[in-house]
Design a protein around this nucleic acid. Structure first.
Length: 116
DNA sequence: AAGTTGACCAAAA
DNA sequence: GTTTTGGCCAACT
């Protein structure tokens, strides 16, 4: 094995997310080998060692919302990108509860959550 | 070298 | 029902 760092593995996994699918931080962490290490996943992406190479917009919260100000240019931009990739978005319904990070639009994890 | 923070997640008060 | 705390592990100061 060449390099085995948690972040490295995270980048690899995130880069491996197929177009039209999204993964949650917890899932990436779990796939990386540490289901409790979701924070480090976010930290790794925040570090953004490879700008333009890592599709951070495909990584979302457990609720299906994204980071409201860290994803990239803007939340609407992300919605456009994901939607363009074929990801189904769900408008904030009254019964959804929870604050919506990105504009209130949540990714339909029921359909687009990436499966290893 | 040690302490603090952090793109999270889940449970308890 | 909402708000706060706890906990994991790695990187930053």
């Amino acid at each position: 094995m060449t390099e085995s760092s948690f972040s490295e593995r995270v980048y690899e996994l995130v880069c491996r997310i197929p177009q039209g699918s999204v993964a949650t931080y917890g899932q990436i962490a779990a796939l990386a080998g540490n289901p409790r290490n979701a924070r480090v996943v976010g930290y790794a992406l925040h570090s953004n060692p490879k700008p333009g190479v890592i599709p951070c917009h495909r990584v979302v919260f457990r609720d299906g919302s994204l980071a409201p100000g860290f994803a990239f240019g803007g939340p609407e931009r992300q919605r456009e990108l994901l939607e363009d990739e074929g990801i189904r978005f769900i408008p904030p319904k009254d019964g959804e509860s929870k604050p919506a990070g990105a504009d209130g639009w949540l990714v339909d994890l029921s359909r687009c959550q990436w499966k290893a």
